[in-house]
Simulated assay, not measured.
Amino acid sequence: MKVGLFFGSFNPVHVGHMIIANHMVEYTDLDQVWMVVSPQNPFKKSSNLANDYDRLQMVELATNGNDRLRASNIEFALPKPSYTIDTLVYLKEKYPNNDFSLIMGGDNLVHFHKWKNYEAILEHYRILVYKRPNYVTEAYDNHPSIQIVDAPLMQISATFIRQALRDGKSIQYLVPDPVWKFLDLSPIYR
């Protein structure tokens, strides 16, 4: 099975994430997209993160009913901070028959050379890249392991959504309905 791994804090998961995940599973050769909730990204502060299990629950709510999208807590049991190469090695051992690819935004591709063992990732895994506003990916256009996917450009951010919640604004339509209902009843981000 061809599985795309869409790593993220998903703090919270929003419609931009869901559109990208759905686009990747519908318009590439992937059979499934696993939305991997990362407990701690080595490049981000963890102080702004909601609880791991709350973020996982929101991704589960968002993916519920779509058998091609799935929430994954695979990094919860791995050492922190989460390094993609370690997760990939673990997943390959656990699911040897799956063919894993990474899904990332052009903003991450620009800094990819700073990732732990990025050369090994490029050598052994395909990377599906969706463009992000104001980030240029042309340097990788002809790399054999990197496929630039013409996915919809989204300018929705989890930072904006968290601020909207703190300001008492509605986030309806910015997040999937079940996530909106969950957050409407929760003190998270307020």
Rank of each mutant, 00 (worst) to 15 (best):
L69V: 08
D167L: 06
G105T: 08
F76H: 11
V25R: 04
Q57W: 00
L102A: 11
P42C: 12
I171E: 09
I127N: 01
F6I: 07
S47L: 11
I171P: 05
K80I: 07
Y125V: 10
P42I: 14
T87M: 04
M154S: 10
Y27N: 14
I20K: 05
Q57T: 01
H124M: 03
N108E: 13
D107S: 11
N48F: 07
A120N: 07
Q32E: 13
Y189A: 14
S38A: 06
K181I: 03
L69R: 12
L5W: 06
N51Y: 00
N97K: 05
V89Q: 09
L109G: 14
V89G: 05
I19D: 05
K45M: 10
L30S: 07
N98W: 01
D141S: 07
S170P: 11
P176D: 07
R70C: 09
I121F: 02
H143K: 03
D150N: 14
D29L: 09
F182A: 02
H143E: 09
E26S: 13
Y95P: 13
F160N: 13
F7G: 02
T137E: 07
Y27D: 14
Y173G: 11
L5S: 01
T137R: 04
L174G: 14
N22G: 05
A50Q: 15
P152E: 04
P152Q: 15
E26L: 09
A120S: 12
Q147I: 13
L128R: 03
S82A: 08
F43A: 15
K131C: 05
F7W: 02
L153W: 05
I121N: 09
V59W: 00
M154C: 11
S170G: 04
F182P: 00
Y83C: 11
S9A: 10
F10C: 01
D31W: 08
L5P: 01
M35G: 01
T63H: 00
L69Y: 06
N73A: 12
I188D: 04
P96N: 09
N41S: 13
I156T: 12
Y135I: 11
I146L: 07
R68Y: 06
G106S: 12
Y140F: 15
V3W: 14
F76L: 08
I161Q: 14
N108Q: 15
R162C: 03
T159E: 14
S38R: 00
S101M: 08
D184N: 03
K114S: 13
L102M: 12
N134M: 05
I148W: 05
D31A: 10
Y130M: 08
F160S: 09
T87F: 04
M35P: 00
G16P: 03
Y83D: 08
N108M: 08
W115Y: 00
R68D: 04
T159N: 08
Y90K: 11
E93F: 00
T87A: 12
F100A: 02
N117S: 04
K92C: 10
I19L: 05
E119D: 04
E60G: 01
F43V: 07
R55L: 02
W115A: 01
V179Q: 11
M1V: 12
L78D: 15
I146S: 07
P144D: 10
L128I: 11
P81H: 15
V149H: 09
N41T: 12
D86E: 15
W34V: 05
